[in-house]
């Protein structure tokens, strides 16, 4: 007998790929099932399980915006077994996708607000979805300030998008690289994101902040935001934890009583303060 099977992925075809950096690639994916292309909907900040058949599954956020129909994108860094196999694939190849999973960013709450969006490294991926969502619904959101950083100039991703976003009205893009990561031509800032944030000293003024990046960057950025007077329920971040099922069953992504896959991955700083330091 066939049973309800949430583990069965849909097939998606790689229609384009962009090498963002030497080890970071963005794939544009289209559902093989034509009815899913329009029907598939999600929120910025939600994620999926992407699979290379014969190798396994890995979790990535959906890096494109739900406002841009017909395809989804993911950005992944060459890291482990699945991402190594993914990099061997080419345009035209098929992979598996199941999702969307997780809560996503609270876009309704963010409407009408000025946004400060802080992203480090591949942590920009979920933020790209949110930024595109805001820009595609421009009148719903206030000023958007993007603070983006990477270890070196060569590690900055979404270079083309950053340039386009920076040219839009009401959008400001500030880029920084870690000390030593700059080149002679670099015109951006040099410094770790929390330090640059401290120097910029944005005022809370009803703003919402969305932070995503490596755990260490999030940790120190949250401390700076706290010092700058941002209320913890207006500071939003996304967590990553190892996941297998994405359905709140396999017991792997728990932080205390919370399942990152189901209750997250988006949490406010206030939520995090209530959880054990188990991430």
């Amino acid at each position: 007998m066939k049973v309800r099977n949430d583990y069965l992925p849909d097939l998606v075809r790689i229609v384009a790929m962009t090498d963002e950096t030497v080890d970071l690639r963005t794939l544009r994916l289209v559902f093989e099932d034509p009815s899913l292309r329009d029907r598939f909907s999600f929120l910025p900040g939600q994620f999926g399980q992407y699979s290379v058949f014969g190798v396994g599954e890995a979790v990535f956020t959906i890096a494109s915006s739900p406002t841009r129909k017909g395809y989804i994108e993911c950005s992944f860094k060459l890291m482990g077994k699945v991402t190594t196999a993914l990099r061997d694939l080419e345009v035209g190849d098929l992979i598996g996708f199941r999702g969307p999973y997780g809560n996503g960013f609270p876009v309704e709450t963010l409407k009408g607000r000025d946004l400060l969006i802080i992203g480090g490294g591949v942590g920009m991926a979920p933020l790209k979805s949110l930024i595109e969502f805001c820009l595609d619904n421009r009148r719903d959101f206030g000023e958007v300030t993007i603070l983006n950083g990477a270890r070196t100039v060569a590690d900055l991703l979404y270079k083309k998008e950053m340039e386009e976003w920076g040219q839009q009205e009401g959008v400001r893009v500030i880029q920084t690289v870690d000390p030593g990561g700059e080149t002679p031509e670099w015109r951006g800032k040099v410094g770790l994101i929390p330090n640059v944030l401290n120097e910029l000293a944005p005022k809370p003024d009803g703003k919402f902040v969305v932070v995503c990046g490596p755990p260490i960057m999030i940790k120190f950025s949250l401390q700076v935001l706290d010092r700058l007077g941002f209320s913890p329920d207006r500071v939003i971040t996304t967590m990553e934890n190892k996941m297998k099922c994405g359905l709140g069953k396999c017991g792997r992504c728990n932080i205390g009583p919370v399942y990152v896959c189901k209750d997250g991955p988006v949490f406010t700083a206030a939520d995090l303060a209530r959880l054990p330091r188990d991430y």
Partner: peptide
């Protein structure tokens, strides 16, 4: 206890995705 892992087992022609106790 009910935690599990999900893995692929495959060769050049075919494979399975399975869940195993963890």
């Amino acid at each position: 206890c009910h935690c599990f892992d999900i893995v692929d087992e495959s060769d050049a022609y075919s494979g399975i995705r399975c869940r195993n106790w963890d």
